[in-house]
Amino acid sequence: MGEMIKTEQLCYEYRGPNESKVTALSNINLSIQDGEFVAIIGTNGSGKSTLAKHFNALLLPSGGNCYINGLNTRDEKYLWNIRQNVGMVFQNPDNQIVATIVEEDVAFGPENLGIAPAEIAQRVAEALNIVGMTDYRQHAPHLLSGGQKQRVAIAGALAMRSRCLVFDEPTAMLDPRGRKEVLQTVKKINEKEKITIVYITHDMEEALHADKVIVMDQGAIVLDGPPEVVFSQVSLLKSLGLDVPLAADIAQELRNRNMLIPRKIISDEELVVALCP
């Protein structure tokens, strides 16, 4: 297993109003392994999306470096390789559908790579099967639910044979059922297809499913660790304006009332075990 994404002292600045410099990211050092599922959380404006856009060279660092599979995103000759390796799925499902039939939409990426039609058909069928949308392959995408549209977008990236998918709040516009569909699909492609996942979310319960959670605030990384370590920092997360998983919140409240509750409780099941041995 190699390193899928690595940043070294990554900084990003842009020009704000009145020619002033705005620092969106400062000294980001992170490493995401091949096959890892990493969640990034942080308030609006904390730099999550700006960081994510560096992962497929939509943005280039103002300082420091970003490597994808060992390739520096600054080097233009790697651009297509990087873009093919790292797919993006955004918040609004309607903004990322290009064709009028589901399978044509999924085929759009591979077609642009100049792949032979027979191979494309095979890739499309495979990708739709993985996201559970085979029955809808002849449907018009705009008539699908939000969750289904997001799964079509994921299939599009799978058909490109992307090894890493970056999700920028993919469930923010979905109803509860759509959220579950998308999260389950993301977990499945991570576990079964070994695709590296970078998952930006405001939903702490979703972040619980990750191998690693990165917390951002004001353009910097404040916490980076396994969910049970990150989410046991209840007061720090709340002071950053973030939520914590409910079980962690209740566990902390019980500790405040002098009850002996083990650290590192973040899921319902762990709380149930602690309280009802």
């Binding site: 209740i250 409240e253 019980l254 405040n256 009332r257 009850m259 002996l260 509750i261 083990p262 602690a274 309280l275 009802c276 041995p277």
Partner: peptide
């Protein structure tokens, strides 16, 4: 919820 849990546990932790 924390209060209800404390009450159910009889005010003392079993953990």
């Amino acid at each position: 919820a924390a209060t209800a849990i404390c009450e159910a546990l009889g005010g003392q932790s079993r953990a």
